[in-house]
Amino acid sequence: MQVGNVTTPFGRRSVTLAQIKGQMRTAEIKAGKKADKWKVFHDACDARAVLGIQDRALAVLDALLTFYPDNELCEERGLVVFPSNDQLSVRAHGIAGTTLRRHLAALVDAGLIQRKDSANGKRYARKDETGGIEEAFGFSLAP
């Protein structure tokens, strides 16, 4: 029997078996594993046709990566970014909200990001007494 923590989408979005498998695979990332976020981005650009995503989805991925503070994606620092749609739209060169949501869904379907929804569907970070992020809700950039 497998025991794990699976998050389901907030609202009317359905969860697929592939999304659950992706969440479980992300939970199994070995400690100390790192990836350069811009190399990951360039690899995604090269594999765009195979992944079935459009160039606007890559602009949204680029915008999401700019919210991650370091150049190396690392589990110890947390891999969840939690920008608002307004800020994400600004960094994605001003795309409309409906277009933004469509391309976020395409990135999730392609397995490049994962949603980590809070109970009320908001994106935010819960901090501890020292100001460090205890738990974050938003988009996971796990490699």
Rank of each mutant, 00 (worst) to 15 (best):
Q2W: 11
V3W: 07
G4R: 11
T8R: 15
T8K: 15
T8F: 15
P9M: 00
P9C: 07
F10S: 06
R12G: 14
R12E: 13
R13V: 05
R13T: 02
T16W: 06
T16E: 08
A18V: 07
K21G: 00
K21Y: 01
M24N: 01
R25L: 15
R25E: 12
A27L: 13
K30Y: 02
A31P: 00
G32H: 12
G32P: 12
G32Y: 05
K33P: 00
K33I: 09
A35Y: 10
A35S: 05
K37W: 09
K39E: 13
F41S: 06
H42Q: 12
H42L: 11
C45S: 02
C45I: 11
C45V: 13
R48I: 00
V50S: 13
I53L: 04
D55G: 08
D55E: 14
R56A: 10
R56F: 03
L58A: 01
A59T: 08
V60E: 01
V60D: 06
V60A: 09
D62R: 15
L64T: 00
L64P: 06
L64M: 00
L64Y: 01
L65D: 07
F67L: 03
P69C: 01
P69Q: 03
N71V: 06
C74G: 01
E76L: 10
E76N: 04
R77G: 02
G78W: 10
G78D: 02
L79N: 05
V80N: 05
V81Y: 09
F82T: 02
D86T: 14
Q87K: 14
V90F: 08
R91G: 02
H93V: 07
H93G: 02
H93W: 06
G94M: 08
A96M: 03
T98E: 12
T99Y: 01
L100Y: 04
L100F: 02
R101H: 10
R102M: 01
H103E: 13
A105W: 02
A106Q: 15
A106E: 15
L107E: 11
V108Q: 10
D109T: 12
G111I: 04
I113K: 07
R115Y: 14
D117R: 00
S118T: 02
N120P: 00
G121Y: 12
G121T: 03
Y124G: 03
A125H: 07
K127W: 02
D128E: 12
D128G: 09
E129M: 08
G131C: 09
G131S: 04
I133L: 04
E135L: 10
E135A: 12
F137M: 04
F137D: 01
F137N: 05
S140R: 07
S140E: 09
S140V: 03
L141M: 09
L141I: 05
